[in-house]
Design a protein around this nucleic acid. Sequence first.
DNA 1: GGCCAGTGATATCCACCGGGTATTTATATC
DNA 2: GATATAAATACCCGGTGGATATCACTGGCC
Lengths: 302, 302
Amino acid sequence: MADLEIRELRYFVALAEELSFSRAAGRLGMAQPPLSKAVQGMERKLGVILLRRSTRRVELTDAGRVLLDQARHVLDAAAAASARTRRAGLPQPRLVVAVKPGGDAGLLADVLARYHREPGHPPARVTVGGWGEQAAELREGAADVALLRDLPDHAGLDHEVLATQPRGVLLPRGHRLAGRGTLRRADLAGEPVPVWPPAGPRHALFRAALDHLPGAAAPEGPEVGDFQQLLEVVALGQGVAFVPLASAALHPRADLVCVPVVDISPSTVVVAWAQTSRSPSVAAFVRAATDAAADISGRHGS
Amino acid sequence: MADLEIRELRYFVALAEELSFSRAAGRLGMAQPPLSKAVQGMERKLGVILLRRSTRRVELTDAGRVLLDQARHVLDAAAAASARTRRAGLPQPRLVVAVKPGGDAGLLADVLARYHREPGHPPARVTVGGWGEQAAELREGAADVALLRDLPDHAGLDHEVLATQPRGVLLPRGHRLAGRGTLRRADLAGEPVPVWPPAGPRHALFRAALDHLPGAAAPEGPEVGDFQQLLEVVALGQGVAFVPLASAALHPRADLVCVPVVDISPSTVVVAWAQTSRSPSVAAFVRAATDAAADISGRHGS
DNA sequence: GGCCAGTGATATCCACCGGGTATTTATATC
DNA sequence: GATATAAATACCCGGTGGATATCACTGGCC
């Protein structure tokens, strides 16, 4: 049962994505024949046909689809192993915390203070990145822990919920519903929802919108790449967006209003970490985060 | 940033476990010098010292400890990739369900019926294994989904709780507390707790016992390897054990009594699966399991 | 304190195989 | 049926993974 090598898995992923031996070989910086041989070797070792190929078409078998998914996990894990080991070997290792601007619900300073109060843990270094990057950073070992909103459902991450925030809908000031004090989601049937981001896994706000609008009554709006574009599209009347009320308050615009929607699930602020890197320092940071959040909500509650 | 190869990670894990180049080389079926060279190559590629070595002692650096942990995850993922791909390539692929005798809370038949009712999914095959094996089977890809009690906290598994069952304490019939109708955990201070299993991650019942008994008041009892041995030890008065009441009812013995303990957390029955293998079939099985559990508890509640 | 046993590092060599080039084979299109 | 394109086959070469032999260092022990 000789197992597969990392190199072979990289080859296979490239091939499965390109569905062409020549193109995949080009992307890998190698010639086509050795790629053919490598894949034949994998099929021999596994005793399984991975690709149905003629001279004109290449397509994955069921087993090939499984291997594509699994290989990505292995490659992530291998990249993470290198990255985390390198970081641990630095003269002064740091706990890398990935945050998104506005995605920490104002908790970051308090969390860091609590984390540093407990001795024996490496100092924290904060990196700022857009949504989606954080999950990738955690999985690939570039970061140890992250504060973010609405965790994507990607496998491999554990999380604790720190806070929930009610969501509203962003509307242009002149919209027929802009004057209402609160809305229910049924009111929004038929409003177009901008697609965000245009490629790859959708942003949680987008998925939330689809989940919350009744049935297929939500036509897809234009594609937007970031939050600013989203605001522009809404201002132009091309779509509506579900955002946390607190987040809307951070970006006030004269031409937009944010109306609370009472019957949709709230946005969550979470602390997340890779399931494969639960070090004592990560645990300490998570504890600091949950303590800080409990303290805040307790203070609000009193 | 050339990444590490699976082969190198296997070498490193063997070396880190043996802490001896010669012994590790022996275990790997190779000679000692190439192992030295391979590890030097890894350190060169990573730019990190993994082992502090003299001619008499070998010990891991901090970075080495990190890599050991990470390498195990990569090797698990790689083994799982091979296993799952092989299984998917079989003429008639199956959904492999790992169950523990008595660990399904009587749900298995109903869950299987519901799963098979939905068309389009491969037929299920049930494998029976002891506790701990199931988690390993899921991580290594030998099984797709498992019904088990008290999920170990190993990383890499997702789960949904299907049911909770109150726990009691097993006592020999002549024990000073055996006549009581119910107990509180304070009553049990000072009772010895058998260690189970003797090596590796502890069984959830054991960890629960330590969590629930006040402070360090619980001396460790003898080591036991399985449930039958645990019953023997308790019968001999060498220790006490926390078990789900339903589980105790399955193994009635004249010389043992099970007394409910009212202030400890209940045992949970969960459906679990590897985070890295969320196929539609797994999702369908999980849905069937939660539906079946909701149905049962609903029927009991009515 | 010096000898010896044991262990890791170095030196050197070989064989295998990962990868390249040239060619053949098969299929879709016109 | 001719042609063009892309995967498979044939063959070759160089790098490297692994083996054997040896050196160098550490630590126990008389």
